[in-house]
Design a protein around this nucleic acid. Sequence first.
DNA 1: GCTATTTCGTCATGCCGATTTACAAATTAG
DNA 2: CTAATTTGTAAATCGGCATGACGAAATAGC
Lengths: 402, 402
Amino acid sequence: MTAPLHEAHPAGRRRALPDTQQGMRRRNLARVMHAVRAEGPLSRAAVASRIGLTRAAVSTLVDELIRAGLLEELGPERPGRVGRPGSALAVSGRGPAGIGAEVGVDHLAVCAVDLTGTTRARAIRQGANRGRSPEPVIAELTELIRRVVSEAESEGLWPAGLAVAVPGLVARDARTVVRAPNLDWRDTDLGALLPADLPAAVDNEANFGALAELWLGEDTPGDFLHVSAEIGIGAALVVDGGLLRGTRGFAGELGHVPVRPDGPECVCGGRGCLEQYAGEEAVLRAAGLEPGRDRVGALAGRAAEGDEDVRRALRDAGSALGIALTGAVNLLDPESVVLGGELSGLAPWLLPSLQEELARRTAGPACPVSVSRLGPEGPLLGAAHSVVRAVLDDPAAFAAQR
Amino acid sequence: MTAPLHEAHPAGRRRALPDTQQGMRRRNLARVMHAVRAEGPLSRAAVASRIGLTRAAVSTLVDELIRAGLLEELGPERPGRVGRPGSALAVSGRGPAGIGAEVGVDHLAVCAVDLTGTTRARAIRQGANRGRSPEPVIAELTELIRRVVSEAESEGLWPAGLAVAVPGLVARDARTVVRAPNLDWRDTDLGALLPADLPAAVDNEANFGALAELWLGEDTPGDFLHVSAEIGIGAALVVDGGLLRGTRGFAGELGHVPVRPDGPECVCGGRGCLEQYAGEEAVLRAAGLEPGRDRVGALAGRAAEGDEDVRRALRDAGSALGIALTGAVNLLDPESVVLGGELSGLAPWLLPSLQEELARRTAGPACPVSVSRLGPEGPLLGAAHSVVRAVLDDPAAFAAQR
DNA sequence: GCTATTTCGTCATGCCGATTTACAAATTAG
DNA sequence: CTAATTTGTAAATCGGCATGACGAAATAGC
């Protein structure tokens, strides 16, 4: 009963534990979890040497984590070296699970991820959500959530929390969708529509995509700019291993960075925003396709077939992206730029002009640009993993829920 | 002998103390210092209730701080209320001092600030530094530093550290000036030229200006964008009460954000960078003045006299700033934008067009723009205060140096 | 004035968490 | 089979804060 069951756990922002002896212990529990999670089965002694505590201290911490069902003892290690072999510890595969959900423009998806990071259950439903009101959409999503949760439960997991990715701006309360132009939602309290028996957090899909890249990508630095696009163009800024959200939670609006100040008018009131050159609608139109009918997914196929109109449209979009990113890189000096979401599939045709523009406008060596290998899966995985991270970051808060 | 005398103390970045009982104590010492510093003379009981510790614990912390010479006992408080009056504690005016220094394009300045935040000694020397090599300039600066230090020492203070503000890019080692175009310095290790008996940290003047605004400004939020200009245009990003420095320490290069991608060429290799429209040289030229002869300071006078050419030049610069800032605000969602440095004097003529551009290009309410009241003093004060902050943030590290 | 009340600073004591030290258990090296 | 090495745990200790009690110094009420 001590666990703050219904407290939101905003993704990627470490809830600061109090600076007391108890807080210290909770942080040490977290360090044990992270060590075991990151470096596979580990003995108590190995954990101790990694996190800089004594074996005795680690012993008591591990006891507590095993009692809480977060760690499990695998039994004696195969003795390779001299000395008594340790007892292997691993993160529990029958403990808490993070439930991730995604509201896309034309699909809904839910998945459950356990502490080891493996996806244990999933459900997807195709269908256009544009213009539908939030209630029926979330009702449908809840239905999927229930299905995934019961599947996870049948495998011995229990849901520790829910994180929902949404294509739009989300307030810092992690509940309210302020504006989702591609769904036509405004100022909607999603928190009230989601199942009340799970602590839930709502966030921008670009943010979750960036977190997925941070946590799951290989060699991803702790400091990068993650660019993604579904219909609008969103970016997420990862600084020092955490998300930069901005005062109201609206940071990363790359789509409305001015590229040509006298360019075509934009819905935001400005002129020549990036979205006018590299947004889905603009690119489809430039490629000679019908924005209402075709989706951005159609572009990759045509470009691969050699359609010159499509290729030119993508080249131009890449240039515009390069100009906007030059500004962003000058302001933020990130270690790299990562293209994610739908953009990763279009990268072969976007990258050359994008990088050319970026290199030309940079004095020293240009900021490296890479492509996410998570692709469109990113936001959903990031959402589920954000819950898992919350457990790893403060295991004590989730101990009582066995 | 336990104090890390020669460790750099990069401004505005909290050196994380270890997560142990000793670290906890050091953080509590810091909390006591901050409470006393912020809320005037305070009794032990008052400190205890503010920082959430018991009177007994605060007593031992205060004892330690008094022995270290960082706090002093002022004697019994005037008894207004019932009960035994407390003994007033204040931050020591005869303890450590932060030495701030500034290398400007045409001046050198040094000052000493005590723990209470008052400036206790200062020295300025006018003279163009552009094109001079670093050695003689820093030798001259060192001379000023020695003078200020001995003046401070004659008032019972001892120097706790030195922070040097430089108009250029500084690497994250807080020693190396990578590029200072207005001085013609490149890849210079200033740390080696500065007095070796003081721990020194070098940083960008825009960063120190922003920190001054953060610490000394009234009602300054913990999340803002600070724009300053001497000759280039620099910005500093304050996020969550700390500086965002970027991977290499180069964040905040607002001057090279593209404003018109096909505009005039820039030294950075790009085209149409903000500096081409709002940099000193561009503005002077647009106003019909001579970039080599006049300085930006001349503009304020002429604009006030009603010189229409100058006013138009500043209006246009404001528009360009507004466009670049639109991009920055979209990316970062700061609580406000603050104009500092030389810009604060030109604000009356820059602001209208700047705010118009920003408002037009923003969907919701535009990000508020304010003007620093610190003006050109900012960087120097920020530097000195950064040392004072380092003492307040970890008093134990400075205790042994009495 | 005198006593009761309130608040402050400090002391003795106890609790909590990690370290230190010691030891039994389980392995390899010779 | 013994010595050496490593693991895990138990007992004692230490560092740091909380708790509770007390004298000191003020006000409030009589």
